[in-house]
């Protein structure tokens, strides 16, 4: 027995869509399975069952909460695919499959949900990493921020690759794959209370293709990490801490778009703490840096890659920056969250 199709034009999510009954089955069929369509999902089991090659596996999970749900250059759906693929890829691994869990707030327009799921499916297809299992829950109005998505990813590490945040060594070079802060500024530009506009788009992208090219060319890479929340500065501090080393970076070498610099000046923010969703940091022995840089620049997602600094011995594990002005300063962990300021 089948009721009328879901009204993707004017309808909205209600509690019945999470109730486990026919309305939920209809939402799963007409939206999720139709969008993510693949053999494993079509089996309609509570789990996906598949064979993998022997070797070292990686597994990661990430929750996505973002306001607004749609932003220039992406939305929460594409972000949930890219972000988790990137976390898998930062071990040097080849991502194999994703799971997705949706917590939907009652009242979310079905049109918005559909737009997000289609964008997520497109991102997954483009990346070649299928969403093979999922879950949907609906919470009462006021108990969620429209939509939360959690994705889990698994991947396989190619033989001979050992990449970890504790492997940076004095003498290593530090590279980034492109301009810093684009995602954070693009999202902030959509927040009414910050009151500025820009043409900038989020850099949200799946980086596993770039990483595959990088590890193939220089298997000696010590660390990879994507500088998401907390930006370049916080991520470098994490790596310095894990590895027990210091770092010195050059301000003039860090790629930065004019719009990001301008927005940060206006809001009193430091672009080094602003989030990225399609960039990575790579650390490897200095002797290999130019080879890696060339490979990165050959890839569409690494065109603006640059060597930005080096790893040094420092028992304080300070990340320091040689400023464009000629002085030196600390680049510290972010304290709390970065707030726009007036003084």
């Amino acid at each position: 027995m089948k009721g009328p199709p879901l009204d993707f034009r004017n309808g909205m999510v209600d509690m019945s869509h999470g109730g486990g009954g026919r309305a939920m089955a209809q939402l799963v069929d007409e939206l999720f399975i139709a969008a993510f369509d693949n053999d494993l999902l079509r089996q309609r089991n509570d789990q996906a069952s598949f064979a993998v090659e022997a070797g070292r596996m990686v597994m990661t999970t990430d929750g996505y909460v973002i306001s607004p749900l749609f932003f220039p250059g992406g939305d929460i759906g594409s972000l949930a695919v890219h972000g988790t693929i990137n976390d898998v890829a930062m071990a040097g691994a080849v991502p194999l499959a994703l799971s997705a869990s949706f917590i939907i707030e009652e009242g979310l327009p079905l049109a918005d949900l559909r737009r997000i799921v289609l964008s997520m499916a497109a991102a997954s297809r483009e990346a070649g990493v299928p969403v093979v299992t999922g879950d949907t829950k609906v919470v009462e109005r006021g108990k969620g921020d429209g939509l939360f998505i959690t994705t889990t990813g698994i991947g396989r590490v190619p033989p001979g690759i050992t990449i970890s945040g504790d492997l940076a060594r004095p003498g290593d070079a530090i590279l980034v794959s492109g301009s810093m802060g684009d995602h954070g500024v693009a999202v902030m530009s959509q927040r009414e209370n910050l009151g500025f506009a820009t043409d900038l788009k989020s850099d949200s992208a799946a980086l596993h293709g770039l990483v595959a090219a990088m590890v193939a060319a220089t298997p000696s890479i010590h660390c990879l990490r994507d500088p998401t929340r907390g930006g370049l500065a916080s991520t470098l501090n994490e790596l310095a801490h894990q590895s027990g080393v210091g770092m010195i970076i050059e301000e003039t070498a860090i790629p930065l778009r004019a719009e990001v610099a301008g927005a940060c000046e206006l809001l009193g923010l430091d672009p080094l703490y602003v989030a990225n969703e399609g960039k990575l940091i790579a650390i490897l022995p200095e002797a290999e840096a130019s080879r890696l840089l060339a490979v990165m620049r050959d890839h569409p997602l690494g065109r603006e890659a640059a060597v930005i600094g080096r790893v040094v011995e420092d028992r304080h594990r300070f990340v320091q920056m040689q400023t464009a002005f000629g002085g030196r300063r600390i680049v510290d962990w972010l304290a709390g969250e970065q707030l726009p300021r007036i003084c």
Binding site: I330, D332, C343
Partner: peptide
């Protein structure tokens, strides 16, 4: 607290000088 406070400025940017 304030980015302009003498302590925050010294802690955030300059404390390597004393270390």
């Amino acid at each position: 607290v304030s980015a302009e406070g003498a302590c925050a400025a010294h802690w955030t940017y300059g404390r390597f000088r004393g270390a």
